[in-house]
Nucleic acid binder design. Structure first.
Lengths: 208, 208
DNA sequence: GTATGTGAACCACTTCACAGCA
DNA sequence: TGCTGTGAAGTGGTTCACATAC
């Protein structure tokens, strides 16, 4: 049953969760689909329909208990535990990822970082000892990590992804500008600012 | 007419363009929708349908001329010119964006960078003199920039976006973890690795 | 013969609208 | 009375399959 939930729905749940987190911090106890929708630019019906795939979390005539719904969403998404990640590629981009302070508070922890440059291997970046990428498989054998982050140039990215897949990584966050391929049991999401820019220009190119 | 083209189609065109660029570099002159689809994980029908919104670029029995189709796509997307961008937020993330070497080759140039931290204002980062964010509007009055990049913390991001909109920016690349709001004539795309991670965990949380 | 271009069929997601419950 | 939960209707996007063109 859970397999028939549209992926777009799953993609929206973390957005709802983030808004609820904010409301909770502000001390709000209850929110309805109307207000939540306004904050997120989503229709109230969308929110109610999305949530209905997983249960009945609201109270008619009242709305949703903020803390309760947030807990439910975290449960659904698997965010009640910590997730370990490995990073491959410690160039400019990789360093920024290591330094980024937005992962840890959400339970995503980078436990190892790899590169293929002898000048970088052995150095320490943001508290992480950089290891040779040749040891990726060995490291993943002894230290468990479910998620891989790819921050290498496009030319070597698919190879890195293949290694990660072979080592049992279950999800990949790909920063490389390629159409990455992975078997169906491995999830991939691309972070690709250039693609984002290149599609927005279509809409603004003839403005004013 | 161009207004009725689905946004998903526009989002795929840069992906096609990137693949064509690669094929061109490899010296390939012709490609068919079958092969292009295999490389990108897209069905051939999808590609043909997408392209049909804009014209007839192929030859039956043969396929598409790589260089020709690439030119057409660049024309359609508005990628035959340079685009100027302003960056607001020169923390860790902003520095990585300034240092990123993937924008310039694609014709996206950061022409000014702003921050609100007196310790950062006046310093030079990657060749950019960092200016006070108070001067954003004034700078945009004299130096034209169509695109804004937001790399500030979530709490201040919406304010920055509002300023950019007020100053006539037409598209925004938002790295802040918020549900950003902008008027319909301003395009926004979010770059949000945490959301990407938080949705992938749904699929992998019960694996093996 | 081969691969495009495209109406038509299909499928998926969104929105509607209201019954049902607090 | 107010807002959720949800079948049903509507909308939008994808895939099919074949006529068309090289």
């Amino acid at each position: 049953m859970a397999l028939e939930i549209p992926e777009v729905v799953i993609d929206r749940l973390p957005v709802y969760g983030r808004a609820l987190d904010l409301l909770k911090q502000q001390g709000r106890e209850v929110v309805n689909s109307q207000e939540l929708g306004e904050r997120l630019g989503v229709t109230p019906a969308q929110i109610r329909k999305d949530l209905s795939y997983f249960g009945r979390f609201g109270k008619q005539g009242r709305g949703y208990n903020v803390a309760r719904l947030l807990d439910e969403l975290n449960q659904i998404l698997g965010l009640t535990r910590e997730w370990s990640m490995v990073l491959v590629g410690v160039g400019q981009l990789g360093r920024a990822i290591l330094a980024y302070d937005g992962f840890t508070p959400q339970g995503f922890r980078i436990i190892a970082a790899f590169d293929d440059d002898p000048n970088i291997i052995g150095t320490t970046v943001d508290g992480h000892l950089i290891t040779s990428v040749d040891e990726l498989a060995a490291t993943l054998l002894e230290r468990h990590a479910e998620i891989g982050i790819v921050a290498v140039p496009g030319a070597t990215a698919q190879g890195v992804i293949d290694s990660m897949v072979a080592s049992g990584v279950k999800a990949i966050l790909n920063y490389a500008p390629i159409a990455a391929q992975a078997p169906p049991h491995v999830r991939i999401k691309d972070i690709d600012p250039v693609l984002a820019l290149q599609s927005m220009t279509f809409y603004i190119k003839d403005q004013d």
